[in-house]
Design a protein around this nucleic acid. Structure first.
Lengths: 147, 147
DNA sequence: ATTCTTGCAAATAATTTGCACCACC
DNA sequence: GGTGGTGCAAATTATTTGCAAGAAT
């Protein structure tokens, strides 16, 4: 999941500069944390970052995630009714399935969405595939709770 | 959007009782509000309810929406990165498209998802179509902001 | 040196909970 | 009358913001 040298090789540093942002240790650490964690909430990112530097503040994490997302280095999705999670885009783009029974999260290739996205595009709507999360349940989960 | 007699005809009252819940004015008002508003946040539901009774409390709205959803009378979806919205299921089931440019929300027939849901089912996953929201942008919106 | 960033604390916003009182069955 | 439901206020949780001090260019 985590490549030694973060997303997009090294050029994200250049990308930062290009947009007038500064390169700070906090930004490096947050990006690495997201990359290593896979899918993580801001809180979890903070915890990971603090393994390396205990002085980092939660508000910095929020601000940094915002910047990184604006730069296209990370994305967020809503994998539970409560709490966004961030993931690096070094993992190729994907959307998510979340099982309400076992809570398992599966990353799926965008190709599976092709028929849907094409249909929507024909109707004038371009879907943001990377942000999509489909809730439901695995058929092999005890399919108990059903209203 | 709002049928005179709320979702499922009148039998939702029976359904309440059947599960040991009591029929209260608050529950009737919240259900009617959701039905009339189309898509509404708890706050908006409260505002609507208060048109009829100013004494109703926000915590009652939260508790009531939870009960109504458990009974299958309403559903919620996340139409913005921030804030769930509730809608009555008297409107036939649908999923949502949300444009990040113009903020427009479009309700779409589940049939459009058929190819996707079938593919996912083949892989052992049953999608909760009614909860799905696809973010993206209309092609006729000024397609400016793109990272 | 200049200006962007950060840490900290306080402000918001959204939702939940404890509890005494009230109303439905 | 007993029990579940409600209002109210306080507690949580999540996120944002103002600002002075610190750091990157």
């Amino acid at each position: 999941m985590a490549t030694p040298e973060a997303p997009g090789g090294t050029d994200w540093r250049a990308r930062l500069r290009a947009r007038g942002y500064r390169l700070t240790p906090q930004r490096e650490m947050v990006l690495r944390a997201v990359d290593e964690l896979g899918h993580a909430t801001p809180d979890e990112v903070l915890a990971k970052v603090r393994e390396q530097s205990s002085a980092v503040n939660i508000s910095t994490v929020y601000r940094t995630l915002e910047v990184l997302e604006e730069l296209g280095l990370v994305r967020h999705a809503h994998l539970s009714d409560r709490a966004p999670t961030y993931h690096s885009i070094s993992d190729h783009e994907h959307f998510h399935l979340v099982c309400r029974n076992c809570q398992k999260v599966v990353s799926v290739d965008p190709d599976v969405l092709r028929p849907l996205t094409e249909r929507l595009e024909a109707d004038g709507f371009v879907a943001d595939v990377g942000h999509l999360t489909v809730f439901g349940h695995c058929t092999d989960c005890t399919p108990t709770k059903e209203s």
